[in-house]
Design a protein around this nucleic acid. Structure first.
Length: 263
DNA sequence: ATGGCAGTTCCTAACTGA
């Protein structure tokens, strides 16, 4: 089973690139973030023609997540609300950042974690609150269901210094600040491990490069797109790789796909 | 230090992203 995650920064702009990528990389599941379109306007047919079933949580202009799957997903739901009480969720489901479904004996959870703008800003507080509620959401999933979990998506956090091209002085930088790193660590403490780090320990491997300053050609990147697995699935994982080919294309997304495989 | 690039919409300016 191969599960990929890719922040496409607008599915309508990236449609042809995603089609071509799927033709060359026929993964079982593709999790997309930042689709930036309402479900009714989502370009479904190019992907359905490739044999995928589409599950979409969309909104206009911002955010938006989707799962493409070769086999139909079961128990698909979006947002935190299906598992948590209204008081806990508050307004968090207004932004479309969560979609999940079951394939085989694995629950896929596709996430687009808030960026947070700047450390100490209102959006940063929103990011921290969102991660706190995410932990409750995932803990509830684990408590209620026997499925293994594959949590993937754009986490907007580089968890360790080796996930950043130049980690020096990043304590106040969004995506690297200690408080948000700790918030993500707290989520992982429920029993999740980073699939990529099972296979690759050195620095220099990234999934996002800023559009500005020729960051990609200088490999000034960040590894912020992750797959987190429950222990049994982590043991079964046989590879996790970053495909930088799409980042080299004209008009690319600023992120590139990451693919995990398990037996 | 700042801003740089890209996508979107209430579209040629302002926002959000990361």
């Amino acid at each position: 089973m191969k599960v990929a995650t890719w922040n496409v920064n607008s599915i309508r702009t990236r449609q042809d690139q995603v089609v071509e990528w799927l033709q060359n990389n026929p993964v079982d599941v593709l999790c997309l973030q930042e689709t930036k379109v309402m479900e009714v306007q989502f370009p479904r047919s190019p992907f359905e023609e490739l044999g995928y079933h589409l599950y979409i949580s969309g909104q206009k202009s911002y955010n938006g997540v989707a799962i493409f799957s070769r086999t139909p997903l079961e128990q698909v739901s979006t947002g935190f609300s299906p598992l948590l009480d209204a008081e806990t969720v508050g307004e968090l489901d207004e932004q479309k950042r969560v979609i999940t479904g079951i394939v085989g004996d694995v629950r896929i959870v596709n996430l687009y974690v808030p960026n947070g703008s700047a450390v100490g800003s209102e959006k940063y507080d929103y990011k921290l609150l969102w991660l706190k509620v995410l932990r409750e959401y995932l803990q509830t999933l684990l408590d209620k269901q026997p499925y293994e979990l594959c949590i993937c998506g754009d986490f907007n956090i580089a968890l360790e210094d080796r996930d950043i091209h130049n980690p020096k002085g990043k304590e106040k930088h969004i995506m690297a600040s200690p408080v948000e790193r700790q918030a993500l660590q707290s989520v992982l403490e429920i029993g999740l491990a980073d699939a990529f780090r099972k296979f690759t320990t050195e620095t220099g491997h990234y999934s996002w490069w800023d559009y500005r300053t020729n960051a990609f050609s200088r490999n000034m990147g960040w590894r912020i797109d992750h797959h987190y697995l429950t222990p049994k699935l982590y043991e079964q994982a046989s590879s996790c790789r970053i495909d930088i080919a799409p980042r080299k294309l004209p008009k690319p997304s600023d992120h590139t796909p990451v693919i995990v495989e398990w037996i």
